[in-house]
Amino acid sequence: MPTPSKPAACPCGGGAFAACCGPYLAGDAIAPTAEKLMRSRYSAYTLRDEAYLRATWHPSTLPAGPIVDPDERLQWLGLEVESALRLRQRKANLPDSPDRDTVEFVARYKIGGRAHRLHEVSRFVREHGPGAARWFYLDGSFPNK
């Protein structure tokens, strides 16, 4: 399956792709927050950008095999980031660290003609290295609702 062309509107819903997730996926900028990284990773999934997904996944939890199946007939339909209030309530139970964050989201997709929802609370860690600090995806859990 060919790689989709870059869209005019950002798949994450944040406006124009060129001003939203585009610079992160192109390597021209580093996502400054865990939420922006999560949004850019959603956009990378919609564009089947394996290289970006691997580069933004923390090495300690990075899968050995492919992240994206180029033959999978999956269509991403939209992303919703959960409310800041719910996130603050959830974070109240976590150790306070400026280098750790969580982002709760619901991504909708269609596969085999059936619509599905992926509801995840993703954990991120920020590492300081040469140049700028960089956020990485660690893992996610799936809350019961």
Score class of each variant (00 low, 15 high):
residue 58 H to A: 08
residue 106 V to D: 01
residue 78 G to M: 10
residue 109 Y to S: 11
residue 112 G to Y: 07
residue 129 G to I: 07
residue 102 T to K: 00
residue 122 S to Y: 01
residue 94 L to H: 09
residue 91 K to F: 01
residue 25 L to G: 11
residue 131 G to E: 14
residue 18 A to H: 06
residue 3 T to P: 00
residue 123 R to W: 00
residue 103 V to T: 08
residue 84 A to F: 01
residue 117 R to H: 10
residue 14 G to C: 12
residue 43 S to L: 09
residue 24 Y to S: 04
residue 27 G to Q: 11
residue 110 K to S: 14
residue 136 F to D: 02
residue 12 C to K: 06
residue 47 L to M: 10
residue 76 W to A: 10
residue 137 Y to Q: 03
residue 28 D to G: 06
residue 27 G to A: 09
residue 127 E to G: 01
residue 28 D to F: 01
residue 112 G to D: 10
residue 6 K to E: 15
residue 86 R to S: 04
residue 54 R to A: 07
residue 127 E to K: 04
residue 73 R to V: 07
residue 130 P to Q: 13
residue 123 R to K: 03
residue 44 A to P: 06
residue 96 D to R: 12
residue 85 L to S: 05
residue 134 R to C: 00
residue 20 C to T: 12
residue 27 G to F: 10
residue 127 E to F: 00
residue 113 G to A: 07
residue 95 P to Q: 13
residue 53 L to Q: 03
residue 137 Y to I: 09
residue 31 A to M: 05
residue 116 H to T: 01
residue 133 A to P: 04
residue 29 A to T: 08
residue 12 C to I: 11
residue 84 A to T: 14
residue 82 E to C: 03
residue 36 K to T: 10
residue 103 V to W: 03
residue 70 P to C: 09
residue 90 R to L: 05
residue 50 E to M: 06
residue 143 P to T: 13
residue 21 C to M: 08
residue 100 R to T: 14
